[in-house]
């Protein structure tokens, strides 16, 4: 399987006039190629157009296309609800599987709905519930454990020279043996929003949306370099199980392969669906990648430790290839 050719040239969403984006969303939709999958989205909500233009601003403005992997709509329902405490709903191929959201916060609905859609429909990929970033052709995989601060660390690394592949889906292609990009914005929750704002004041972030089930959520836009390279996959390099502990000194402990296996497999969205393919893929990752548990309290320390660690990871893979 080859990667789908990326739309070349053309203005980005940010560089396109708002009216044209609104019109495209009201018409045939916008095609968003995120790397491993192309989304097509339609909407009659101007608020959504604005929010989309902020966090997907660096993506090409593509108002037509022959193919999209996932089709969804963010629409304002007809009837009384259009005027009284207005809402938006998420629709995909005639279904509307979610509760509506308030009309002023369509972006989290689109993001969460899109995650659900991807997790149930992209079964040609093993979808790890993990952050993934690339450096020197190798991918760093950060499985999501409760309390790990995976998104925060992923966001921080993506602002310090690591190429963001994905925050939510480690999209592993078992045929190519590579992680593919799934370049959705990084969903930051609660205090993480302020943490990342201070860590990277220049980063583009969508509005902070309060009172979701996850608390306040804000979306960090991927940077232009990550967007330009989204067609390129990366072999898995290392698995890091991050753990944030208040005031703890930084600590990196190697962990054995069987622990990596369970951390990667049992956290994946579609591990069971993929059956043997999924098992073989996770075995491959666990055999090839060294793994560490990273305990940290300061983001800067964690980023520095991973920067330092990476030559060792590269050496490990060179030795493995030579053998």
């Amino acid at each position: 399987m080859t990667s789908t050719p990326l739309p070349t040239g053309g203005p980005t969403l940010t560089a396109t006039a708002r009216d044209r984006v609104v019109d495209a969303l009201r018409g045939d939709g916008l095609w968003l190629d995120l790397g491993a999958a192309t989304w097509r989205v339609q909407s009659d909500s101007g608020v959504f157009a604005d929010q989309l233009r902020t966090v997907y601003g660096g993506f090409p403005f593509q108002p037509s296309g022959d193919w999209a992997d996932l089709h969804c709509e963010i629409v304002r329902p007809a009837g009384l609800r259009r005027w009284l405490r207005p809402q938006v709903i998420f629709r995909c191929d005639g279904q509307h599987p979610f509760e509506p959201f308030p009309a002023d916060s369509p972006l989290p609905l689109y993001e969460w709905g899109g995650n659900w859609l991807a997790a149930s429909r992209l079964n040609h990929l093993l979808l790890l519930h993990a952050g993934a970033l690339e450096r020197d052709g190798l991918a760093l995989v950060l499985p999501a454990m409760p309390g790990s601060g995976k998104s925060t660390l992923t966001a921080a690394l993506s602002r310090r020279g690591w190429r963001l592949l994905s925050d939510e889906f480690g999209a592993y292609d078992p045929v190519q043996g590579e992680l593919r990009a799934m370049l959705k914005p990084v969903a930051l929750k609660n205090q993480s929003i302020e943490v990342i704002r201070r860590f990277a004041p220049e980063a583009v972030m969508g509005p902070a949306i309060p009172r979701t089930r996850k608390g306040t959520v804000a979306h960090l836009a991927p940077d232009d370099a990550a967007i330009a390279a989204r067609g390129r996959g990366a072999r898995p390099g290392a698995v890091i199980l991050p753990k944030w502990v208040a005031d703890a000194p930084l600590q990196l402990e190697p962990i054995p392969g069987q622990m990596l296996f369970s951390a990667v497999a049992f956290n994946a969205f579609n591990y069971r669906v993929l059956g043997r393919t999924g098992f073989d893929a996770v075995v491959q990752i666990a055999q090839r990648c060294p793994g560490w548990r990273l305990t940290y309290s300061r983001l800067d320390d964690a980023v520095a430790a991973l920067d330092q660690l990476w030559p060792e990871v590269q050496a490990h893979h060179r030795r493995q290839e030579a053998a």
């Binding site: 979610f98 509760e99 989290p108 149930s120």
Partner: peptide, 28 residues
């Protein structure tokens, strides 16, 4: 303002782990 959860997941989507982590990670 609730996190979207499938009301009636289509039958072609068998039970999956939650799309977002089961517990909101403590932010560092």
């Amino acid at each position: 303002r609730e996190l979207a959860q499938p009301i009636h997941p289509p039958a072609d989507a068998p039970a999956e782990p939650p799309v977002s982590p089961p517990a909101a990670p403590a932010a560092p």
